[in-house]
Amino acid sequence: MEIVLNGEPTDVPDRLSVADLIQRLSLENKRLALELNREIVPRGCYDEVTIKPGDAIEIVHAIGGG
């Protein structure tokens, strides 16, 4: 299915959970925050939330800044 991941159209397997996506991207042990269709998905809920076609996901982290 096609989703929008960090602003880019991306093809991912169907019936993917947020946890599955994180694993696919090798981000399991990284400190990050995730938004699904503009709503924050808390880290504890990654297993329970399923991604649907057309979903927009933002995955962010902390970088250097003033």
Binding site: L5, N6, E8, H61
Partner: peptide, 8 residues
Amino acid sequence: VAIRRTNI
């Protein structure tokens, strides 16, 4: 720190 997209 700043908050920005992770580099996929």
